[in-house]
Design a protein around this nucleic acid. Structure first.
Length: 848
DNA sequence: ATAGGGTTAG
């Protein structure tokens, strides 16, 4: 799609730049006609030929003349070629066919082939070409070149092989054409074969052939190979330098590119606009503003800046260096601006976060005549829609991509996908994804991370498997979507196999990958492996440290988290706001209240980080869990900004743990005042009432909740057994081994009771008989998952169960008994942390 | 010359 658009633009430009020319104008071939036949009839032919519309006339005259030799036709055709008169040539062709004259003559067929080549009619050219018994190398060359010009690169390469098969030896003009085609196709293997061929003929040192080889190898990523050929060139012109520079720029090698740019000038070759246009993007990528400025000066000195492409490249460089004012100034002073210029400017605003300005410019662009958005423009604007979650505009653009046909452009499709996914419209994203005909690695990456971010990790992993079957190759970014999905599901086996894949493909030393692995392993309960990964990351960044601190936090290893926080300061990396969220919640989970309070104040005083809502949530949680309910309440009231639902929710949770009904009621009034966001809080409040036996109040809360239209999401627990995830909801009978599972639970209950277990009825939130309560509790999802795991996993194996809500208090105590009865180690990950149960205790020290 | 998927908290 992109290609078609570009060609459309180019042909428009061509028409605009070329004034209508009288065909057969000037002195062309007139002289030749005089040399042959009878002067009188030829003279009249020539006269009528001076106008294209008179070709028919010319043919009539030829028809009337006797003994018109083949030369007259070939010269006529030659004239058509020079003036690119397709219609004239076609008329002659038709005349020859009709009269069956000279139509098998090689010389006529050659001229016709060349005519069609020059007029861009490749298929017609090929048709005639195939009738020539032994075309010479020049004709083969122009045919190959014609395919290349028309974008039919694969056919250009095919034709080269055909030519060799026919025993025609390529010359120094053949190689540049066919190598160019290989370079565009990234057909390295073909390119190498052709390179060998050129070597055998001894043409590989020709400046044009060498340049084409440099271009081929550098575009295919073999920069060393390109450099070797480049170094061996006896002479290098600006095109050769540009090929080398463009190759290194393409791979984002800023230093090498600038090095070549300087070297070129030292060698006495002046850069041209193509050089500049190749170099500037790497300057922008590397954000080296000073270098960019001096390149800009160079352009001004050589008046390159009048060139649209150069101007656009300079503008883009400033935008990438976050110098929007410079970029805008360039934009304003440019005499000519193309769609690319506008797109670059809009893109600059988007990456700098100025969405309003970006959308304003996009609207202005739409109002301009003869200025239509390109696929790239739409991609940029969709990114803005995603960041703003401007769904209306996003959908509008979706409509436009359908109408314009741009939806077939895979990048546009991917931008739409990620716009929907990031706006939380995962169903729209999935349906678009299913409709997309061509899907690449990026499409899969977008939908996988989209599913993960929208809480559908299972679907994410399912699509990941489909991706591998489809033959698309997961890359680094794909895995950065897959690993969090594994982490969410605690799917250790799948996460581990992902880790293996990353090692095999050489991605495992990447920092972001390491960070995602730390998170995955620590959420799968393997804090030891997480630490190993952390220690092996060659260049840790702040995210690595944060992930590791958080990992210790949810595993109840607060002291380890604090130790790491102190190590962090020793290495000289500055903690960021997220670091404090991690360390404060780590303190909270381990009951390290003094340390947490200290850190909260140090955060502002020593680290210059102003606490955000998230930090207040952590602090309320820390104080509340620790039993300092009034202090937590005071803390909220002293907040410098309005606390949100989650802050009050943290306090309500603490009221639940410590059974404080009075404060719980105050808090829940505040929550209801703040609006409908706090679904989970209804459950908490109702639980507080029912724990105290106030069934009527509890029921009332449930009724209000219902009236407001909220559903409590059912508790769900799952466990991974030999690579597949088995999920259970409370009282669930849908599992194939259900009967065995319930039998096991009854058996366990008997043993647990012998050791002193009593079902804690305060966790049953319905007013039913005691025995019924015991059953309800016994069939909680976490207990079902544990029973299934006991049946399925060998006794020496730790059982990992994951739950979508907080683990229930009765289950928490029951699991302790289960570890005593079965002598097994059980870990439960709930929404807030890990509970590692062993020998009748849990490492959360009942701080759940 | 412009463009797509990405890790940490709760």
């Amino acid at each position: 799609m992109t290609r078609i658009t570009k060609r459309y633009v180019i042909s428009q430009a061509f028409h605009a730049a070329t004034p209508p020319k009288p065909v057969f104008s000037g002195t062309l071939s007139l002289v030749h006609f005089h040399g042959e036949g009878r002067a009188s009839s030829n003279d009249s032919v020539l006269k009528s030929l001076s106008k294209e519309t008179n070709i028919k006339e010319a043919i009539k005259i030829l028809e009337r003349s006797d003994n018109v030799g083949i030369g007259a036709y070939t010269r006529l055709l030659e004239a058509c070629i020079r003036s690119k008169s397709l219609s004239g040539g076609e008329k002659i062709h038709q005349y020859l066919l009709k009269n069956n004259t000279h139509i098998r003559s090689s010389i006529v067929l050659e001229k016709l082939t060349r005519l069609y080549v020059e007029c861009g009619e490749v298929e017609l050219a090929r048709n005639v070409f195939d009738r020539i018994p032994n075309p010479n190398v020049v004709l083969w060359n122009s045919m190959i070149r014609a395919y290349s010009w028309d974008g039919l690169f694969d056919r250009a390469v095919d034709l080269y092989y055909e030519m060799c098969d026919m025993g025609v030896e390529p010359n120094k003009f053949t190689f540049p054409f066919v190598l160019k085609a290989c370079s565009v196709l990234k057909a390295l293997e073909d390119g190498k074969k052709i390179h060998d061929h050129a070597k055998r003929i001894g043409l590989d040192f020709d400046i044009y052939v060498s340049t084409a080889l440099v271009d081929l190898y550098s575009k295919c990523g073999c920069l060393n190979e390109a450099q070797i050929i480049f170094d061996k060139m006896p002479k290098r012109d600006v095109v050769a330098w540009n090929a080398m520079i463009a190759g290194s720029a393409l791979h984002g090698l800023y230093k090498d590119t600038i090095g070549l740019f300087l070297e070129m000038q030292k060698a006495g070759t002046n850069p041209n606009t193509s050089t500049i246009v190749a170099v500037l993007p790497t300057v922008g990528q590397a954000k080296v503003l000073n270098q960019g400025k001096s390149m800009h000066c160079y352009c001004v000195r050589r008046t390159f800046d009048k060139d649209v492409q150069v101007g656009t490249a300079v503008l883009d460089m400033y935008a990438k260096c976050e110098q929007l004012d410079y970029a805008r100034r360039i934009f304003n002073t440019m005499g000519v601006r193309t769609e690319v210029t506008w797109s670059a400017m809009i893109g600059g605003y988007v990456s700098c976060g100025c969405m309003g300005e970006a959308l304003k410019m996009f609207d202005q662009m739409l109002l301009k005549d003869e200025m239509d958005p390109t696929p790239a423009t739409l991609g940029i604007v969709l990114r803005a829609c995603a960041k703003l979650t401007d769904i209306d505009r996003g959908r509008q653009i979706h409509g436009y991509t359908i109408k314009s046909g741009f939806l077939l452009d895979i990048m546009v499709g991917n931008s739409l996908l990620s716009m929907y996914a990031k706006s939380g419209l995962i169903d729209d994203a999935i349906s678009l994804f299913n409709k997309m005909e061509a899907k690449d690695t990026v499409s899969y990456g977008a939908i996988i991370s989209g599913c993960g971010q929208n809480g559908n990790a299972k679907e994410a992993l399912f699509i990941f498997h489909k991706m591998q079957v489809s033959g698309a190759h997961p890359d680094l970014a794909t895995m950065l979507g897959v690993l969090p999905a594994c982490a969410h599901l605690a799917a250790l086996k799948q996460g581990r196999s992902g880790h293996g894949y990353l090692i095999v493909h050489g991605f495992s030393s990447d920092t972001s990958i390491g960070n995602a692995l730390i998170d995955m392993y620590s959420k799968c309960g393997r804090i030891d492996v997480a630490r190993e990964v952390f220690d092996r990351i060659p260049k840790q960044d702040i995210v690595s440290w944060n992930a590791m601190i958080a990992g210790y936090g949810i595993n109840g290893l607060g002291m380890e988290a604090l130790r790491l926080f102190h190590d962090l300061q020793k290495v000289g990396i500055k903690p960021d706001d997220v670091t404090f969220v991690c360390i404060l919640s780590a303190c909270s989970h381990s009951g390290l209240i003094t340390e947490g309070k200290h850190l909260f104040y140090a955060m502002n005083k020593d680290f210059n980080i102003i606490p955000r809502m998230e930090h207040y949530i952590c602090m309320v949680d820390l104080l509340g869990r620790g039993g300092f309910l009034d202090e937590a309440h005071n803390f909220i009231q002293r907040m410098p900004f309005e606390p949100d639902v989650q802050v009050w929710g943290a306090l309500l949770g603490a009221c639940r743990i410590h059974g404080n009904i009075e404060l719980g009621e105050v808090v829940s009034k505040n929550i209801q005042r703040l609006g409908p966001e706090g679904t989970g809080n209804f459950v908490l409040l109702s639980n507080i009432y029912s724990a105290a036996g106030r069934w009527v109040d509890a029921a009332h809360v449930r009724i209000v909740q219902k009236d407001w239209g909220f559903k409590k999401s059912p508790g769900c627990s799952w466990v991974e057994v030999s690579g597949s995830v088995h999920a259970f909801i409370g009282g669930d009978h849908s599992h194939p081994q259900s009967a065995l599972i319930y039998e096991k639970l009854e058996e366990l209950l008997v043993e647990m009771k012998k050791l002193g277990y009593h079902a804690d009825a305060s966790f049953v939130f319905q007013d039913v008989e005691e025995e019924e309560k015991e059953r309800i509790l016994l069939y909680h999802s976490e207990k079902l998952a544990i029973a299934f795991a006991i049946l399925s996993l060998s006794p020496n194996k730790t059982i990992f169960v994951t739950k979508n809500l907080r683990v229930c208090g009765d289950c928490h105590s029951a699991i302790k008994f289960i570890t005593m009865v079965t002598k097994r180690v059980i870990s439960v990950r709930d929404t807030s942390r890990f509970h590692h149960f062993k020998d009748g205790t849990c490492n959360c020290r009942d701080f759940w």
